[in-house]
Computed example of a mutant assay.
Amino acid sequence: MYTSSPSLYLLVIIIIKQISYITTEKLPSALSSIELATKYGHPPTQYNIITEDGYILAVFRLPGRSRIPVLLMHGILDSSDMWMLRGNTSLAITLANNGYDVWLANSRGNRYSRRHKILNPDTDPAFWQFSFHEMGYYDLPAVIDTILNESGAKKLSAIGHSQGNTMFYVLGSERKEYNSKINVLIALAPIAYLHNTPPPLSIVIQLSPLIESLVKKLGVYEIFGDNSTTGLLVHKFCSTPDIAYAVCIEQILFPVLGFDREELEPEFAPTLTVHYPAGTSVQSILHFLQIGYRKMFARYNYGSKVNRRTYNSPDPPEYQWDKITMPIALLAARNDRLSSIPDVAILRRRLPSVVFYLENPRSTLNHVDFIVGRNMPVYLFPYIFQILHENNHFVD
């Protein structure tokens, strides 16, 4: 439980309201996904995919000679950029260099998928009424169908990071016909439960009812978008060389995701912070906080009144693990403070089709090392290529 402090409540409101008066400036320049892929030798094709509910998603294809496409799905507040920031030692470029047909998706609401057929993200709050549920239920089917149609393959392989895996659990549970379209999901830093997260995140989870009440009162829908006040502040502040590492990495990122200065070095910090965060809905953050607070992997909790209208129940329904039959490889890290080993263990017990499990032998591997660590080709890529080799099956 939590105790509501009126003075704390008022202070947070004042701070957030004052932030809105800060003069906005242009973000520091950053290479786009198209520019990154082209820079490293793989000029991509862009697809603008429209979901069932009208969102327009940007997906980039790095064509390869392999007949089996590989879909890379980023985590929360992230984008397709992150898979290429390390250049020739990044996962997307390494896969492309080895002949894989690589597809980089962007979930709704980030910098590449902030579009809709009807809704305006700047003026329509309805645009932002989504979380990983809608990403799994609508975004992934649209992306998977497009990939299979364009490639001629019957099945694909997928690699997810963090929320990029949560989406697949929703897909397998809610749209079970898609289980058979996936050779294997390689789940890097998989997230489904947040029972065992240490401070400071555990404190935020306990305060989540207060946080949810505040954002609703203030009418905040988007967070850390490129043109939002929060996004402009973070990118401007954290791209400053003297601040990027000492504050944004060591004081903010590492306490939540795990400390590992060897893999995320000071020289790389400005490159990371100009691309990350890439924006999402506030509801996406709140959904994960609800999972931690309620200790249930369930649909979004709107409150009993709206839940009854939406789910015909005062409580949101839990996702059904037994329907998730796609083969899944779980790759966890002992120094991951967000996707902790005990929480991954709960997930592993729930999933009926785990084909591979690994606690990475590198003891300081953290949550973000899986996608931007300096030495990924040494401690991570051999396992990914092994799993792909053992599970990739082309169906005529």
Rank of each mutant, 00 (worst) to 15 (best):
Tyr2Met: 15
Pro6Lys: 04
Leu8Lys: 07
Leu11Ala: 07
Leu11Val: 03
Val12Ser: 14
Gln18Asn: 09
Gln18Cys: 12
Glu25His: 12
Ser29Gln: 09
Lys39Asp: 00
Tyr40Trp: 14
Tyr40Pro: 02
His42Ser: 10
Pro44Thr: 01
Asn48Gly: 05
Ile49Ser: 09
Ile50Asn: 06
Thr51Asn: 04
Leu62Pro: 04
Gly64Pro: 10
Ser66Tyr: 02
Asp78Asn: 14
Ser79Leu: 02
Ser80Glu: 05
Met84His: 12
Asn88Phe: 07
Ala92Glu: 09
Thr94Pro: 01
Ala96Ile: 11
Gly99Ile: 10
Val102Arg: 04
Ser107Trp: 06
Gly109Gln: 14
His116Leu: 11
Pro121Ile: 07
Pro121Ala: 05
Asp122Gln: 07
Ala126Thr: 10
His133Asp: 13
Met135Pro: 01
Tyr138Ser: 12
Tyr138Glu: 07
Pro141Asn: 15
Leu148Arg: 12
Asn149Arg: 15
Gly152Cys: 12
Ala153Gln: 06
Lys154Ser: 14
Ile159Tyr: 05
Gly160Ala: 10
Gly160Glu: 05
Gly164Cys: 06
Phe168His: 08
Arg175Cys: 03
Lys176Tyr: 11
Lys176His: 06
Glu177His: 03
Ser180Trp: 00
Leu185Cys: 02
Ala189Tyr: 03
Ser208Thr: 03
Pro209Asp: 12
Ile211Glu: 08
Glu212His: 06
Val215Trp: 09
Gly219Lys: 10
Gly225Asn: 13
Leu233Phe: 15
Pro241Ala: 06
Ala244Leu: 09
Tyr245Ala: 08
Pro255Cys: 06
Phe259Ala: 12
Glu262Asp: 14
Leu264Met: 15
Leu286Arg: 03
Phe288Asn: 00
Lys295Phe: 15
Phe297Ala: 06
Val306Gly: 04
Arg308Ile: 14
Arg308His: 09
Arg308Asn: 07
Arg309Val: 08
Thr310Ile: 15
Thr310Cys: 04
Ser313Lys: 11
Ser313Asn: 15
Glu318Pro: 00
Trp321Asn: 00
Asp322Met: 01
Ala332Leu: 03
Arg334Gln: 15
Ala345Thr: 13
Arg348Cys: 03
Arg349Phe: 08
Asn360Thr: 14
Asn360Ile: 13
His367Leu: 11
Val368Glu: 13
Arg374Pro: 00
Asn375Pro: 03
Tyr379Pro: 04
Phe381Glu: 04
Glu390His: 14
His393Arg: 13
Asp396Arg: 05
